[in-house]
Design a protein around this nucleic acid. Sequence first.
DNA 1: TTCGCTTCGGTGACATTGTCACCAACGGAT
DNA 2: ATCCGTTGGTGACAATGTCACCGAAGCGAA
Lengths: 220, 220
Amino acid sequence: MTTWIDRFEGLSSLPADVRDILVGQSQVLKVPAGTVVFGPGKIPENLLLMLAGTVRVQQLSESGREIVLYRVNAGESCVMTTACLLAYEEYSAEGIAETEVEAAAIPRGVFDELVSRSETFRRFVFSAYSKRITDLFFVIEEIAFQRMDIRLAQRLLTLSRETDVVKATHQKLAAELGSAREVVSRQLQEFQRRDWVTLTRGTITLLDKYAIKKLAETEA
Amino acid sequence: MTTWIDRFEGLSSLPADVRDILVGQSQVLKVPAGTVVFGPGKIPENLLLMLAGTVRVQQLSESGREIVLYRVNAGESCVMTTACLLAYEEYSAEGIAETEVEAAAIPRGVFDELVSRSETFRRFVFSAYSKRITDLFFVIEEIAFQRMDIRLAQRLLTLSRETDVVKATHQKLAAELGSAREVVSRQLQEFQRRDWVTLTRGTITLLDKYAIKKLAETEA
DNA sequence: TTCGCTTCGGTGACATTGTCACCAACGGAT
DNA sequence: ATCCGTTGGTGACAATGTCACCGAAGCGAA
């Protein structure tokens, strides 16, 4: 029988008994876009395995600025909830459902049992951690060392996957990059001047993805 | 009998059989200051539990700049090695022994067995992960949103714990903060102008820790 | 429609930080 | 003493962040 487990690469080879625990003891739930999946003041009770949708994990500063750390997509697990399941200390990041999200919720106790019983599950969990940590390393490298125009170009491309239109305010883009609105606005104007994009209120239309990609791939 | 295990808070309540495995199957080793404990191209074979000394974990950019991510001190574990034990992908961070380092090395297989058998050990491992992830969140917040003078003041304080003297070149301090030497030099000159420090080649002497602390604690 | 409100984006002035080129001072090695 | 690599100082400039303020676009109510 196929279950949602099969959507996770790392879990395909789980032995039958472990599979049964995982499927039997977890609950598939759906939350609407905009839901705060975890965040300061919310004690997470479950490890989430994302079946559909996207969760955006972001950091807020006291001064009101924010930065997007990474996104958790379908087929991945939201280990921040685990990390904070173990409650090292109060964390300042929060996870927000960007779309409607469907996820399997594994309660704390079940999670612990699975880690204990299954080497496959352990591998899955630890490699999820590794991925997030390397994601964070990447973010740090970007904000510390990369030019804004390059980062903006990269972000426009990732936010526009199939289509050529990015629906986002300059403010939202600035939050993606941990920068200020004015900086993003000015960069976008420069892109427009080069006929790479057209700008209208709330949307950026990519005219010359090739040129943008070339900038995004600039090294050093 | 007391062993090095007792130096780790989280491991004090390990059952006797698990203790025996941990002590029996791991090896205490010593490496001199400057050793690259892990890094690109080095496949880590062990989880390291730090008994004495400090490991500095830092990130290098292609352009040659660098930034210190965090330090692993005695009584903590170096989970980056675990993360990359599971080898998610090539990581760009490296760990360097800042002092002579004494550590217990737990081989991969033993680590796996311990995680499987002991809930205490699991807690220990996962809270180590949580701590590192929150460390990284903190670093991101700092570099994205915090002013350099404040960050420099903070760093000078943490690097001068008991003494009032920081032995470091401006270049090293810049690497700590992911900034440029000139920026650090100028900030230090400003601190000197205010009679907070005196500067000589390779050392910064803190004259007015109180004033520095006050700056370091500035919010927003 | 028109009015009024909110959100979004544009702008200039300025502060901070990063980059570059270059030089001078220091200190160790010969 | 001389040489030389390291360290730090400097000025000019570029890139980014901050602030105050404004006008335009959208949207709902009258």
